[in-house]
């Protein structure tokens, strides 16, 4: 693989750029459009499933917590690198509390009323992505992450030991 790692930002045959309004149905439609294109870049079904989960969680999180019912756009940029598919997702909604990403730690729950109905999203994002990075700049949230796409890998889990 000789694809230059420094191609970020440049026009690139493997780069995809899209934007969508911040609502749950637009997220669904965007995933339906992106998935066949991602399938060409991510050969392993397991990796592709992970990519769909992470993207859905990241985009729906923006709809629910950054825009909270307000109108706003979400921009998705992806570039192909030797390590996988690098995503940059930008929105103009509210920043994360304390300008930090949620830990995604699961609250230990048993089969009781204390079992959480939420908080699963960041746990999934953190488990299935790599190089997760958040910046707040000029009223914009910018989240970047890498979804591994090992061309030789047939099965197994991402980012797990």
């Amino acid at each position: 693989m000789t694809m230059p790692d420094s191609a970020e930002g440049k026009a690139h045959p493997g780069a995809i750029h899209c934007w969508l309004p911040g609502d749950a149905f637009a997220v669904r439609a965007t995933l339906a459009q992106l998935l066949p294109r991602l399938a060409e870049l991510i050969p392993c079904e397991d990796d592709l499933g992970a990519a769909e989960i992470v993207l859905a969680e990241v985009l729906n999180n923006i709809v629910e917590h950054a825009y909270r019912g307000r109108r706003g756009d979400i921009e998705v940029d992806l570039t192909i690198t030797p390590e996988g598919v690098r995503f940059v997702v930008t929105d103009s909604g509210d920043p994360f509390p304390d300008r930090r990403l949620p830990s995604g730690r699961l609250v230990a729950g048993r089969l009781t009323d204390s079992l959480p109905e939420g908080g699963f999203g960041w746990h999934l994002i953190r488990n299935l992505s790599r190089e997760l990075h958040y910046e707040r700049n000029r009223g914009q949230n910018r989240l970047s992450f890498l979804l591994p796409a090992d061309q030789s890998r047939k099965r197994g889990e991402i980012g797990r030991s």
């Binding site: 769909e52 729906n60 079992l115 959480p116 109905e117 908080g119 699963f120 999203g121």
Partner: peptide, 30 residues
């Protein structure tokens, strides 16, 4: 199924009375 869907499944389980289980079948890979 995403985290919202999972949260909804958990919420349904909480609607069940004690001793009346909600069980799951047929999970697809993702």
């Amino acid at each position: 199924l995403d985290s919202s869907g999972l949260g909804a499944v958990v919420a349904v389980m909480k609607l069940m009375d004690a001793g009346r289980p909600l069980e799951i079948a047929g999970l697809t890979p993702t």
